[in-house]
Write a protein that binds this DNA or RNA. Structure first.
Lengths: 201, 201
DNA sequence: CCAGATATGTAGTGTTCGCTACAGATGTGG
DNA sequence: CCACATCTGTAGCGAACACTACATATCTGG
């Protein structure tokens, strides 16, 4: 009937450490030994709390997307489609080269391709990237309805485009591109959205 | 003094099979058992011919980039910067959804993040992606000199941009995006290059 | 036909992987 | 203070990993 011995570590802090290991080494490249060491716990504590390695990844992804969604709210709150794209892509240039985190994006670094027992890891990442794309698409649909985007524009295609550029920037960041290089990419990319914006008269 | 027993398999055909396994599962996700089975040989033959797993990957990358460079020659032969971007991105939409190959790009799927013994695998991939970017940059420098791109344009930034979009499209393809979706992304992306092109008079 | 050289198939090697049994520690409810 | 529930650390489990020793087979040069 008792509630048992309480856990001695903070689950969210431990998750943050695990997140960084997955971010840096990918799902398959991260070992339980590395994860437990970074989290400051032993394997049984990890398994009692998160089930298994994949459960830990999902928990880390949940935390990552939760933080990211807060930021996405600010992004789609920008007044125009062009401003949305600019705020998003410039923000990504910042975040993906923030020395406080591993470079790139966990939703890409986590594992684009995996071995035979982990086929659903890439799927998990893709699902969460798609959520981001959906948010953008909804915002661009609104922009079109408001006359901010041209009547001939395709909001879904624009959203896919911005999402693709984001991913590409993430890969660039993970392979050493600096902030200025990412900013340049973002700057060029915004022009395509601008080309789909209605003329200011 | 004799030349010994000749090898009974075709190295290039075997490489093509290995390339596909790396492409689909990534470097760390691909096992020697999978590779040898796909190549139709046994481990000792693999190690005699390619040294080790990483040597096999490099050989596969060499073959991949060799084929890809032939195509890139055609891309940069397009008459204008806009045509270069369009030919490249539309071609990528085709190639990365070609059912004859795994989806996406080997230079991304191969391994963006790796474990502790394989840190230089992501570096190898990044190096080869950079070569592609260099080809584009040189072409855009020429386009600017020819007056095809605006005097204010930044050829290096444009090349980085097209390269980033290509990578993003690859990740999209690997997570199930169909050819039409990629074409839409390419179509939007080209508009940014168009915005940097000199006006036709 | 023989000697040296290289490739092949079988059958492993040692290591590391994700994961867990178990015993002791630390909490709660009665 | 006791029964019970949960967490923690040690130590190690079976499986899969990259890789290889070794005997055999197949070639060339003489």
């Amino acid at each position: 009937m008792g509630m048992g011995r309480p856990r001695e570590f903070d689950a969210e802090m431990a998750l943050d450490q695990a997140m960084e290991v997955f971010w840096r080494h990918g799902y398959e490249g991260a070992t339980i030994a590395q994860l437990t060491e970074a989290m400051g716990i032993n394997p049984p504590s990890l398994y009692a709390c998160f089930g298994n390695k994949e459960g830990l990844l999902k928990a880390a992804l949940d935390r990552y997307t939760k933080l990211r969604n807060i930021w996405m709210e600010e992004v789609v709150a920008a007044p125009t489609a062009r401003a949305v794209a600019e705020r998003m892509l410039m923000g990504i240039a910042e975040k993906q080269t923030d020395p406080a985190n591993p470079p790139g994006c966990l939703l890409v670094q986590g594992g684009i391709a995996c071995g035979s027992g982990s086929e659903n890891v890439p799927f998990e990442l893709a699902t969460r990237r798609a959520q981001n794309e959906d948010q953008l698409r909804d915002r661009f649909i609104r922009a079109k309805a408001e006359g901010d985007l041209k009547p001939t524009s395709d909001p879904a295609a624009l959203a896919r485009y911005v999402s693709a550029v984001s991913v590409g920037m993430g890969v660039m960041a993970s392979s050493g591109a600096d902030r200025e290089a990412l900013r340049q990419v973002a700057s060029v990319a915004v022009q395509a959205v601008e080309a789909q914006s209605a003329d200011k008269t």
